[in-house]
């Protein structure tokens, strides 16, 4: 189902872009995640599950825009956890579901027509982070909205031939979500590989 939704979303791109005039940029990416610090303590494994949607409005060599992303991290582990007066043994299934809603600003480097163009950016906004542990027949869930910031760098490579409006892009982002509720701050590197349309 998600596959068909993603495919339908890309078909809508021309209409969205045409309605907004030139200088608009719309991207869709496959998003991977490498957890660090508290996030790695909870779910250690590198994640290949995630996707993102991005819109940017250009002005010269700068742009501002909006980004929506989704990453799923998980880890399976077994063993004994000890507490002050207790110890619990069982298989644990840990999940970290993160949805990010971020405003963005980017500045672009050189790169002539048809050449790769590097960029630096900063994103800021909110992260909804749901952390869940399934152990035995129990389930413990912790859900919080976090404020966060995410500096990133990347580059886009325009396609050739008749596809002047299309480009591939890749970017690496350091996500930092401030502590919220009972959850400590969360951090991970996002690695995106995407496809963009510009008008």
């Amino acid at each position: 189902m998600r596959v068909w939704i993603a495919a339908a979303a890309t078909l809508l791109v021309p209409a969205v872009v045409a309605g907004q005039g030139r200088g608009k940029w719309f991207g869709m990416n496959w998003s991977m995640a490498a957890p660090i610090e508290h996030t790695k303590d909870f779910t250690n494994d590198y994640s290949f599950r995630g996707m993102g949607l991005e819109w940017r409005q250009f002005s010269g060599n700068k742009s501002f825009g909006f980004n929506a992303g989704w990453n799923v991290l998980n880890e399976e582990k077994s063993g004994t956890q000890t507490f002050q007066q207790a110890a619990i043994n069982g298989d644990q299934f840990r999940y970290n579901n993160t949805v990010s809603l971020l405003l963005s600003a980017h500045v672009y480097g050189g790169g002539g027509s048809g050449k790769a163009r590097p960029y630096l950016g900063l994103k800021a906004g909110t992260y909804f982070i749901s952390r869940r542990v399934d152990v035995g027949l129990w389930q413990i869930t912790d859900e919080n909205w976090h404020w966060g910031v995410a500096p990133e760098f990347g580059f886009s490579v325009p396609m050739r031939g008749g596809f002047q409006s299309e480009a591939f892009y890749a970017q690496v982002r350091y996500n930092y979500a401030f502590s919220a509720g009972d959850a400590p701050y969360q951090s991970w590197f996002g690695i995106d590989v995407g496809f963009a349309v510009r008008k």
Partner: peptide
Amino acid sequence: LRFCVGMLVGALAA
């Protein structure tokens, strides 16, 4: 092209 890219991203994500 866009449909194929969408299918690919969706498949990779899900």
